[in-house]
């Protein structure tokens, strides 16, 4: 029935030649805004933490519908550090969703972290920064920043830290997280490869009690390869992902940035 009703049958009354009937304002209610303040700029991000490092990655394509707006729009941002170049920063924020909100969020968090250093004379810890980011998002819950954020760094024990967020500030620390357009493609892959879900002791006998493989901390080389595999595969299956892969590796020594091309189709 729904399919039928979208087609308007010829009637006796004068009709419009186009499908969309004008909305009636005769009801007396106030005119509603037709302006929608959000858009989706596509792309995907991903973070994995190890025992002494955290890797955050994202593709560099930015889209609007079927248009590629640009092939290089980074979704990864250094937070804190000195000056506009963020020298010495040890926290990375990745944002995917509505790019303008992502930019605004990045600028706010960066300002907060820099102010923290000016006022307290020490760098903000990742877990403090993570909590603060949650507050920033939650404070705008009635007009949210339309982004999925992932925050990465090294915690006070020197262990890789990774936090993931929803648009209104709900957050948790995780081992790995994929976000954005291809999250549904990448996340199951990470579950299987990082947390070893659905992998069992190969030598154990078949049956209900077959023991699961226990996840072990991964080394940097393995994680980098996982990230590359995740993105090259996502590029094949998702039109909003591609062009370039940007990776930031956070260790106790700072942030190392890597870039490699992805398919442009």
């Amino acid at each position: 029935m729904a399919a039928l009703s979208s087609y308007s049958m010829p009637t006796e009354q004068p009709a419009f030649s186009f499908q969309n009937q004008p909305q009636s304002h005769a009801s007396g209610g106030p005119t509603q805004h037709s302006f929608y303040p959000y858009t989706d700029n596509g792309g995907s991000t991903l973070g994995i933490s190890g025992s002494s490092f955290t890797i955050i990655a994202g593709d560099t394509r930015m889209t609007s519908g079927y248009n590629i707006l640009t092939r290089y729009a980074p979704k990864l941002f250094r937070i804190g550090g000195e000056g506009p170049e963020h020298a010495g920063a040890k926290i990375v924020l990745s944002v995917v969703g509505f790019a303008a909100d992502g930019q605004a969020l990045q600028e706010r968090l960066d300002m907060v972290v820099k102010m923290y250093r000016y006022q307290h004379g020490k760098d903000m810890s990742v877990h403090a920064c993570a909590q603060r980011l949650s507050h920033i998002l939650y404070n705008k819950r009635f007009f949210p920043y339309y982004v999925q954020a992932i925050l990465g760094g090294i915690d006070e024990e020197g262990v890789g830290a990774l936090y993931s967020y929803d648009p209104v500030g709900s957050y948790e620390r995780e081992q790995c997280r994929a976000a954005g357009a291809a999250a549904s493609l990448i996340m199951p892959f990470l579950d299987n490869q990082v947390n070893l879900k659905n992998q069992y002791e190969p030598d154990a006998p078949q049956g209900l009690e077959k023991p699961q493989l226990q996840p072990q901390p991964l080394d940097r080389q393995t994680v980098e390869e996982l990230v590359r595999d995740a993105f090259t595969s996502a590029v094949e299956r998702h039109i909003e992902v591609g062009d370039g892969l940007q990776m930031m590796v956070i260790t106790k020594d700072g942030i190392e940035e890597l870039y490699s091309p992805l398919k442009q189709d």
């Binding site: 959000y38 930015m62 707006l69 640009t70 092939r71 290089y72 729009a73 509505f98 790019a99 930019q103």
Partner: peptide
């Protein structure tokens, strides 16, 4: 109008995004 920003070696707005880009 949404405050979205990006940069590229070539840019085109409106119909230009489809025809000129």
């Amino acid at each position: 109008l949404l405050g979205t920003t990006y940069s590229a070696p070539t840019l085109a707005t409106g119909f230009g995004a489809h025809l000129a880009q």
